[in-house]
Simulated scan of single mutants.
Amino acid sequence: MAVPALARSDADEPAPEDSAPSPRSWGRAFGDIRQAVAQRELWGHLGWQDIKQRYRRSVIGPLWITISMAVTAAALGGLYSQLFGQPIGTFMPYVTVGFMIWYFISACVLEGTETFIANEGLIRFLPAPLMIYVFRTVWRQILFFAHNVVVYVVVLAIFFTQLDEPYRMVNVVPGTEDLPGLLHPGLSWWALLAIPAFVLIVVNGLWVTLLFGIISARFRDIPPVVGSFMQLFFTMTPIIWTTDLLRGGEPGSIKAIIEQLAKLNPFYHFIEIFRAPLVGQAQSWTHWAVAGGITLVGWTLALVALRNYRSRVAYWV
């Protein structure tokens, strides 16, 4: 008696290959960015709420940001102008703009390390692109920066005459007598270069926040380490002192070595492309070239990190 053939079940069919893109794909990485840009109302609202929450029940609210910036600039600008023998009319705006942009850069770095950690609840339960939290952090810092611009406007109104007057700083800084051209050509339409400079700094703030946020989500020792290094970089960056004080050193001397180390400081170049046009100083295109190179390298690293680890951040936080 012939045995009937068993019916072939669906389970015996070869399983179709999963056509879904791999979690580690450039398509998903760039899709994350596109979705976050499209949801700008969400991260824009979250950024506003961060500031409102921080100053809730305060009488003057976010104006404390401006007051704090004004007090810091006035105190340190007045003190160090006397210590370094600098004219307060040009040194006060120099320090003010330096603090303005340094606060923005350092906040992107420091708060960038906490971006995903601070948004743990939203990341776990809200199906949203990771870049939303990056945009939220940088947008919040832009709002803080906008409050600090008020201080620069006031300082500019007070010291406009001194800033607008071109001169060489030979009578202020010894050893600069042989430098060609004007170290301080005065304010002009070149001040508008501060706008693209700030845009470039914001673009860098995005990759810094993204890259450091991913690394810090995996390794929780990174935030305190970065905080310690940022304190060191503050003292090494010409914010309350000028690089003119380092000029004139003999080759191989300590002064010459410190001058070269100052030029290797990446924060120095970003600060100069923004500060120099706003305080009437000569602009060096070398700073733009270095800042542009750092932007390309930084975004390359950040995109690689987003491609490889975006799906793991929810587990790390």
Results as ranks from 00 to 15, higher is better:
Met1Ser: 13
Ala5Glu: 10
Arg8Ser: 09
Ala29Trp: 02
Arg34Pro: 01
Leu42Trp: 11
Gly44Asn: 06
Arg54Pro: 03
Leu63His: 11
Leu63Gly: 09
Thr66Met: 11
Leu79Arg: 14
Ser81Arg: 11
Gln82Trp: 15
Gln86Asp: 10
Gln86Lys: 13
Phe91Ala: 08
Phe91Asp: 06
Ser106Pro: 00
Ala107His: 04
Gly112Gln: 03
Ala118Gln: 12
Glu120Cys: 11
Leu122Ser: 11
Ile123Thr: 06
Arg124Leu: 14
Leu130Lys: 00
Arg136Ile: 02
Arg140Gln: 08
Leu143Asp: 04
Phe144Met: 09
Phe145Val: 01
Ala146Trp: 01
Asn148Gly: 11
Tyr152Glu: 01
Tyr152Cys: 08
Val155Asn: 05
Leu156Lys: 05
Ile158Cys: 04
Phe160Leu: 10
Gln162Ile: 04
Glu165Leu: 12
Leu182Gln: 11
Leu187Ile: 15
Ala194Tyr: 06
Val199Asn: 04
Val202Asn: 04
Gly205Trp: 02
Trp207Gly: 01
Trp207Ile: 03
Val208Gln: 04
Phe212Asn: 02
Gly213Met: 01
Ile214Met: 12
Ile214Ser: 05
Ile215Leu: 15
Phe219Arg: 13
Ile222Tyr: 10
Ile222Ala: 08
Pro223Ser: 08
Pro224Asn: 08
Val225Ser: 14
Phe229Leu: 15
Gln231Pro: 01
Met236Pro: 04
Ile257Leu: 15
Phe267Pro: 02
Tyr268Lys: 11
Phe270Leu: 09
Phe270Asp: 02
Pro277Phe: 02
Val279Gln: 06
Gln283Tyr: 09
Gln283Val: 14
Thr286Asp: 13
Ala289Asn: 09
Val290Thr: 04
Ile294Phe: 09
Gly298Ile: 05
Thr300Ser: 12
Ala302His: 03
Leu303Ser: 08
Ala305Asn: 04
Arg307Ser: 07
Tyr309Gln: 08
Val313Arg: 01
